[in-house]
Computed example of a mutant assay.
Amino acid sequence: MSDNISTPDGTGAPANGGLKPMPKVRPITVNDVIDALAAGLADFRKAPVFGLAVGAVFAAGGLFVVLSAAALNMSYLSYPAAAGFVLIGPFAAVGLYEVSRRVQTGEDLSWSAIFGTMWAQKGRELSWMAFVVLFIQIMWMYQVRLLLALFLGFRSFASFEEFLTEVISTPEGLMFLAVGHVVGAILSLILFSLTVISFPLLLEEDRDFITAMITSVRAVATSPVPMIGWAFVVTAVLIVSMAPAFLGLIITLPILGHTTWHLYKKCVEIPKES
Score class of each variant (00 low, 15 high):
119 W>T: 13
119 W>E: 14
120 A>N: 11
122 K>I: 14
123 G>P: 07
123 G>Y: 05
126 L>C: 09
128 W>H: 11
129 M>W: 00
129 M>E: 08
138 I>M: 08
140 W>Q: 04
141 M>I: 10
142 Y>M: 15
143 Q>V: 03
143 Q>N: 06
145 R>N: 15
151 F>W: 15
152 L>R: 06
153 G>R: 05
156 S>D: 14
156 S>I: 10
157 F>A: 06
157 F>Q: 10
157 F>H: 11
159 S>L: 04
161 E>C: 04
162 E>D: 14
163 F>N: 08
165 T>Q: 12
165 T>F: 11
167 V>C: 01
167 V>K: 00
167 V>T: 05
168 I>T: 15
168 I>H: 13
171 P>T: 02
173 G>D: 08
176 F>G: 05
176 F>D: 02
177 L>R: 09
180 G>F: 11
182 V>Y: 09
184 G>F: 01
185 A>V: 02
188 S>L: 06
189 L>V: 09
191 L>E: 05
194 L>K: 04
197 I>E: 04
198 S>C: 01
200 P>H: 09
200 P>T: 05
202 L>M: 09
205 E>M: 05
206 D>Y: 01
206 D>N: 12
208 D>V: 09
209 F>M: 05
213 M>H: 08
214 I>Y: 12
215 T>A: 10
216 S>E: 05
217 V>D: 08
217 V>C: 09
220 V>Y: 08
221 A>T: 08
222 T>F: 03
224 P>R: 00
225 V>Y: 01
225 V>G: 06
226 P>E: 00
227 M>G: 10
228 I>W: 03
230 W>C: 00
232 F>T: 04
234 V>S: 07
234 V>Q: 06
235 T>Q: 08
236 A>T: 13
236 A>C: 07
239 I>V: 14
240 V>S: 08
241 S>I: 04
241 S>F: 08
244 P>Y: 07
246 F>I: 08
246 F>K: 11
247 L>W: 06
247 L>H: 04
247 L>D: 08
248 G>S: 07
250 I>S: 05
254 P>Y: 02
254 P>I: 01
256 L>F: 03
257 G>M: 02
258 H>F: 15
260 T>G: 03
